[in-house]
Computed example of a mutant assay.
Amino acid sequence: MKFATLLSLTSGLLTSALAAPLEARVDAQEFDVSGFTAGCLPHGTQCSINFKAATNQQPFQTTCTFTGQPLGASSLPDVGFTACEDASISFSFRRVTVGDATAYYELALVNAEQNLAVSKFFPATEFPLINAGASVYQSFTGQNIFVVKA
């Protein structure tokens, strides 16, 4: 009887000990993004993407920023991987078209130190073209705080 109790107790402790590191690895497979903005200036020649990003393995947020020329006259351009203030984190942004009509925008985030790469797909409806009278420009209208998981 004592052996069975000891075996059960040992098994429970071993299971708990093994689960803790696994949980930490699973939790690290995400970025917390806040303050996400993306858009082009009306009557302008610049577009920008700005946000803060962090993982649960970092004690701080880093700022990620891109500024560049619009695609055509008014649309957000594709952005190749660009380093954030913390150079171990980089991001890319691009328009993805599926089939003939369905369009999405993809935000990809990479943390080289943590071997972490994730992406989020936004529906194109969250990046509408807005009529400003004499010009049209594109601006993000979705939630500006979100989690991007692997």
Score class of each variant (00 low, 15 high):
Ala124Met: 10
Phe91Val: 06
Glu113Ser: 12
Pro123Ser: 07
Leu109Tyr: 00
Ala54Pro: 04
Thr55Arg: 00
Asp32Cys: 07
Leu109Gln: 00
Thr62Asp: 00
Asp100Cys: 06
Val98Gly: 08
Cys64Ile: 07
Leu107Pro: 05
Gln46Ala: 14
Ser139Tyr: 05
Val96Cys: 02
Ser48Ala: 14
Asp86Ile: 01
Ser16His: 08
Asn115Gln: 11
Phe81Asp: 08
Asn50Trp: 08
Ala134Lys: 12
Ser135Asn: 13
Ile130Phe: 04
Leu9Glu: 02
Gly44Thr: 13
Leu13Tyr: 06
Ala4Glu: 01
Pro70Thr: 04
Leu18Trp: 03
Met1Asn: 14
Ser88Val: 06
Val147Cys: 04
Gly133Asn: 02
Ile89Asn: 01
Pro123Trp: 00
Gly12Tyr: 10
Phe127Asn: 11
Val148Asp: 04
Gly44Glu: 12
His43Asn: 15
Gly80Pro: 13
Glu106Ser: 09
Asp27Cys: 09
Ala38Lys: 06
Pro59Phe: 12
Phe60Gln: 08
His43Pro: 06
Thr5Gly: 13
Lys120Asp: 08
Ala19Met: 02
Glu23Gln: 06
Gln29Pro: 12
Ser75Asp: 10
Tyr104Phe: 15
Gln138Val: 06
Leu7Pro: 02
Asp86Ser: 02
Ser75His: 08
Val147Phe: 04
Gln143Met: 14
Phe146Lys: 00
Ser74Glu: 13
Thr67Val: 15
Leu13Cys: 07
Gln58Val: 10
Asn111Thr: 03
Asn115Tyr: 03
Val136Phe: 05
Gly99Met: 02
Met1Val: 10
Glu113His: 09
Ala124Ile: 07
Val98Met: 09
Thr67Trp: 08
Phe51Gln: 08
Leu22His: 00
Leu107Asn: 01
Ala112Val: 06
Phe31Ser: 01
Thr82Ala: 05
Ile89Met: 04
Pro70His: 05
Ser90Phe: 11
Leu14Tyr: 00
Thr55Leu: 03
Asp100Glu: 15
Pro59Asp: 10
Thr63Glu: 14
Ile145Gly: 08
Pro123Lys: 01
Glu126Trp: 15
Ala17Pro: 05
Gln29Ser: 13
Ser16Asn: 12
Leu22Trp: 00
Ala112Ile: 04
Gln29Ile: 07
Val33Met: 02
Leu7Cys: 02
Gly80Asp: 14
Arg25His: 02
Thr125Leu: 14
Leu22Ile: 06
Gly99Ser: 04
Cys40Ile: 03
Thr37Gly: 13
Leu7Ile: 03
Ala73Leu: 13
Gly44Trp: 12
Glu30Thr: 09
Ala53Trp: 02
His43Asp: 15
Met1Gln: 13
Phe91Gln: 06
Ile130His: 02
Gln69Pro: 09
Phe66Trp: 12
Phe3His: 13
Thr55Gly: 02
Glu30Ile: 10
Ser16Gln: 13
Ser139Gly: 11
Pro21Lys: 00
Gly133Gln: 01
Leu107Asp: 04
Gly72Ala: 08
Leu7Lys: 06
